[in-house]
């Protein structure tokens, strides 16, 4: 049985729900784990503003803010007390903070989110807990795709 604690003010489910996209494998693991720009191991605690351009994997604890132009993977045992901004994300751990994902956000069954969620597309697995507002708008994601393809044409 689905059990969500969701106080939803506005939900736009314009995008289709896909279970997992190319960056994640069938088990919900981050496929390019070894290629991630930054990996925070399960025994490590980080405080501050964590800003990057590449993929970030968090398996440990993080307090502050997390922002990247690429993908974020939050592991099952991770505890994040931070706002999260990324292009795409897979969340399996605990997050206390707002999440803003430009394109696709996958929330795994072990995820526990307290905060507002904003993304282009979303999938939520049975068992996940979310307390906060969820805004899903594919328009944002589409705009980014169009902009990218225009840039590619120019090149």
């Amino acid at each position: 049985m689905l059990f969500y604690q969701i106080s939803i003010l506005k939900i736009h489910l314009l995008g289709g729900v896909r279970l997992f996209k190319s960056m994640f494998n069938k088990d919900g693991k981050f496929e390019k784990f070894k290629d991630a720009e930054t990996i925070i191991g399960s025994s490590i605690k980080v405080k501050g503003n964590f800003h990057g351009k590449g993929d970030i994997v968090i398996e440990g604890m993080l307090e502050g803010s997390l922002k990247t132009e690429a993908n974020v993977f939050i592991g099952e045992k991770a505890k994040v007390g931070a706002s999260v901004e990324a292009d795409e994300a897979l969340i399996n751990g605990e997050i206390n903070g707002n999440i803003k994902v430009k394109k696709y956000l996958a929330i795994g069954k072990t995820a526990k989110i307290t905060g507002d969620v904003q993304c282009g597309e979303i999938s939520i697995e049975r068992g996940a807990s979310i307390t906060g507002q969820i805004i899903v708008s594919a328009e944002n994601a589409k705009k980014i795709e169009i902009k990218k393809s225009k840039e590619e044409e120019e090149i």
Binding site: K34, D35, G48, N49, G64
Partner: peptide, 29 residues
């Protein structure tokens, strides 16, 4: 100057410029 990594247990930390350990995980990066 952005963030702090806290080490509270006995932890081996390496800051590497040129890897000398072929067995090191992620060493090829």
């Amino acid at each position: 100057e952005d963030y702090i990594l806290e080490i509270n247990k006995k932890t081996p930390v390496k800051i590497i410029n040129l890897n000398d350990d072929a067995k090191l995980s992620l060493g090829q990066r």
